[in-house]
């Protein structure tokens, strides 16, 4: 007990903080994870403050200046201008807001619904499990983009509809993950212990199982973020997502493709933004997985 007396955390919070620092130490060991974290942080900062610091806020709002169409990148227009004479840099920066917000919303809704469905299916098993999981399987037989397209087309354009459309195709992945984790955790000794103490279903799920499966869900969310942004962009690209003039990376890319390769900058910069976001979130997700891998735990 001598080892423990040395540093005793005063409360659960400081003990948690200690754990977080330990986790960050492992995270720090991989520079790719750090790169991912930095990219994601920068993206979020840009998304929050971006629209207010862009050089041409009026272009973001939709005004055009035909006199300055298709100017190549210069000191005045870092990413050049597009077919309407709008500053591409301003549009890409402002577009980050929609892309990130929609991506986050999709992942959050998908994870929430999927976790609920998966937890119920995994814990109760039997018929409940069969019905819920066949429903999820049914969804997995339809390519997610096609389904999202169909739903988005039916609901009409708009950010909210797009988020709903993508989320519908998104939850089954989480449901399957959570179901598997719940089934595994259900057999853990500490869950058996709680049951032996007389704990009921609600308590076991809430206090013992769900907190212990949060980690893989968070990792999946982080890995999915990139793909969600890509899906949002894809819907924008095929024209059933966000409508102009609201800038969004996918629709920017979609419009620009007609002017390739002569006015390459109109496509390259929104494209690079998508690439960077997807890349950043994937690196971050990989890093988080390394941190939370129970085998790496002390």
């Amino acid at each position: 007990m001598t080892t423990l007396a040395e540093k005793v955390p005063a409360s659960a919070t400081s003990s948690r903080w200690e754990n977080a620092r330990r986790g960050f130490y492992r995270f720090r060991n991989s520079w790719l994870s750090i790169a991912g974290l930095l990219i994601v942080l920068v993206l979020f900062i840009i998304a929050v403050i971006g629209p207010s610091i862009v050089p041409y806020p009026e272009h973001v709002a939709g005004s055009v200046s035909t006199a300055t169409r298709f100017q190549p990148p210069s000191a005045l227009h870092w990413f050049g201008t597009n077919e309407l004479g709008q500053d591409v840099f301003s549009l890409v920066v402002a577009g980050s807001q929609i892309s990130l917000l929609a991506g986050l919303a999709v992942v959050a809704v998908g994870a929430l619904v999927g976790t609920l469905v998966g937890a119920v299916a995994g814990y109760f098993g039997g018929w409940t499990d069969e019905v819920l999981m066949r429903l999820a399987d049914l969804k997995l037989t339809v390519p997610s983009l096609i389904l999202a397209m169909a739903v988005a087309a039916a609901l009409g354009p708009g950010i909210l509809n797009m988020v709903i459309a993508i989320s519908i195709s998104w939850w089954p992945g989480y449901a399957r993950l959570v179901r598997g984790e719940v089934i595994a955790k259900k057999e853990e000794m500490f869950v058996q212990a709680a049951r032996a103490l007389g704990a009921g279903t609600g308590r076991i799920l809430r206090r013992h199982i769900l907190p212990n499966i949060l980690t893989p869900v968070i990792i999946k969310m982080s890995l999915d973020m990139g793909f969600a942004i890509l899906t949002v962009a894809s819907l924008g690209f095929i024209g059933i997502g966000v409508k102009p003039p609201t800038p969004e990376w996918g629709s920017l890319l979609s419009i620009a493709r007609t002017y390739m390769p002569d006015y390459w900058w109109t496509a390259v910069f929104p494209g690079s933004a998508i690439f960077l976001a997807v890349f950043g979130f994937n690196l971050l997700g990989d890093g988080l997985r390394d941190v939370f891998d129970p085998k790496a735990r002390r």
Binding site: S15, M189, F190, A196, L197, R207, H208, N212
Partner: peptide, 28 residues
């Protein structure tokens, strides 16, 4: 009541000692 074999697996890793020991008192 029961004491389990494996002291590593039978305690919920996400709960503090306080929560672990007071849980049976909450249940009962």
């Amino acid at each position: 009541q029961i004491v389990f074999q494996d002291p590593y697996a039978s305690l919920n890793p996400r709960m503090t000692v306080h929560d672990i020991i007071s849980e049976p008192m909450e249940i009962h």
